[in-house]
Design a protein around this nucleic acid. Structure first.
Length: 482
DNA sequence: GACACTCGGATAGAGGCG
DNA sequence: CGCCTCTATCCGAGTGTC
């Protein structure tokens, strides 16, 4: 789901990283540097709305917190802040009671400790043993009818920090995952499992749990533990999934979806067969279309395209992230089809959590709907200043809405076009913020995509040539911060 | 060599507006 | 009624894998 995206930690040349597909070049995420001196940031500064005196001032906007000092409002914001990181209301309230409202770091530590000590219903999500190490993010079964995997708190405590698990466990916790979920993931995937698989395991279990919670009141729940990947991520499809459709994963989520005529053709073909198991030639035809368009089963002989909400879930974005605000379904598909997979980006950026305990200044190029920002937030990394360059007004609106909804305390500055980001702008920002800690972005790949029959012109194509702008800006930032 | 997959683009048609 | 915008639908060749 990622391709051609770059992530550069500009203060640590040794950990400059590039992401292509799901592979990581130089992925020594354990490597950790000391904190930067520029982390001394004045959170109470009141001069954040200044517009930098850029040549195109109207293209730069700033969004910041109102700065309310009302205790209850602050408390509410704190709760929302930590809820957004995946903790429960009870945990957050308890942590705030223990640490007070003024020290978020202590609250976060308490929350992580709580997650490691209280009884956690997440274990329910991990009962069916299977090999997750080679599967994707949507591979968790959460069936309730298999009790062969269960561990007690005492077992967890005894088993917690032993040799090989220790380091992996601490890394996962530092990435923002609850202790117990991390421990269960290690137990299920094996001590030698790759961290990305462990992260996938935890995220998928959280996703499943959320979906299941919405379905609890429904009658006739289906508990088929034999079903596979996407049927687990999309449990409402379980009931209708035919045995002869043995797909275990979905294809890349693209910017367009299958037409209604495709699903109608499938329904008609299957109904004409009449049999429970259609003849092989019909199966082949149907499966090809299902694979091509990521169709899932939603009724007898009835397939459907994924909804934008399901795109959001699978990509790790908050529910309704791209919904509303005058945004059409088509635009949602387009925006989501081009977006980062948040869990994957969070995995790659997790190394920054220790390096920048006071938060980061980010230059986000081709921001899209803010996958990088969401990932950093999810990791609990404060966003001090984010300069976001995004050509699409729809996408800028989505990111700005998310910024306000999650009550970010830092500053968001918007730029329309990366081509208009000059070295003067970069110098101004660096002087202003004390430097960027992270440059991240995914330049357009329209002209690189195999799906493009019309203008696959490579890196010299109209859109994909913006890669060179990314390269230029990264170089200018690194040179300016030498 | 057969097969599967692809961060897409062009366009007809619906709908809004004056 | 004409123009414009927006949306949904249809369109396949290049490339990698087995």
């Amino acid at each position: 789901m990622l391709s051609g995206h770059g992530i550069v930690n500009v203060n640590d040349k040794a950990t400059v990283r590039s992401v292509v597909g799901n592979d990581t070049i130089n992925s020594d995420y354990r490597h950790s540097q000391g904190s930067s001196s520029r982390n001394q940031y004045d959170w109470d500064s009141d001069d954040d709305l200044e517009v930098f005196g850029m040549p195109q001032e109207s293209n730069v906007h700033s969004v910041e917190e109102s700065g309310s000092t009302c205790s209850s409002a602050k408390n509410s914001k704190l709760i929302h802040h930590f809820l957004g990181m995946g903790f429960s209301v009870e945990e957050v309230i308890k942590a705030i009671e223990e640490d007070g409202e003024d020290n978020e770091e202590n609250i976060l530590e308490t929350l992580l400790t709580l997650a490691a000590t209280i009884d956690d219903p997440m274990r329910e999500a991990f009962r069916e043993p299977c090999d997750f190490a080679k599967k994707s993010v949507t591979t968790i079964d959460i069936s309730d009818d298999n009790d062969d995997y269960d561990i007690s708190d005492s077992e967890i405590e005894e088993d917690a920090f032993t040799s090989e698990k220790d380091e992996t466990l601490s890394i996962l916790v530092n990435m923002g995952y609850p202790f117990k979920e991390a421990l269960i993931a290690i137990d299920k995937c094996g001590p030698g499992a790759d961290l990305s698989d462990l992260a996938d395991f935890i995220c998928a279990a959280q996703l499943e749990k959320e979906i299941e919670s919405h379905l609890q009141d429904r009658p006739n729940r289906i508990h088929d533990t034999s079903l596979h990947v996407h049927k687990r991520a999309l449990p409402t499809t379980r009931k209708w999934w035919p045995k002869w459709d043995r797909r275990t994963q979905l294809n890349c989520l693209l910017t367009s979806i299958g037409a209604a005529t495709v699903t109608e053709k499938i329904r008609r073909d299957l109904e004409e067969c009449g049999a429970e198991t259609p003849p092989p030639n019909v199966q082949d035809t149907v499966l090809k279309l299902c694979k091509k368009w990521n169709l899932v089963w939603v009724g007898k002989n009835k397939v459907a395209t994924l909804e934008p909400d399901e795109y959001e879930m699978l990509l790790g974005f908050p529910k309704d992230h791209t919904r509303g605000g005058g945004i059409s379904r088509t635009d949602r598909y387009k925006a989501l089809g081009n977006a980062f997979q948040v869990d994957t980006v969070a995995y790659h950026l997790s190394v920054l959590k220790d390096q920048y305990p006071n938060g980061v200044n980010v230059l986000s190029l081709f921001s899209g709907i803010g996958g990088a920002e969401v990932a950093l937030h999810r990791l609990g990394i404060k966003l001090k200043n984010v300069v976001s360059a995004e050509i699409s007004e729809v996408n800028r609106n989505i990111l700005r809405c998310w910024w306000e909804q999650t009550e970010q305390r830092g500053n968001l500055f918007e730029v329309e076009d990366v081509q208009r980001v000059t070295s003067e702008h970069i110098s101004h920002w660096i002087n202003r913020f004390g430097g960027f800690d992270l440059v991240i972005g995914g330049s357009p790949c329209n002209n690189l995509s195999g799906s493009n029959r019309v203008s696959r012109d490579g890196l010299d194509g109209e859109h994909s040539s913006l890669f060179y702008e990314y390269y230029r800006i990264v170089n200018e930032v690194m040179q300016a911060q030498r």
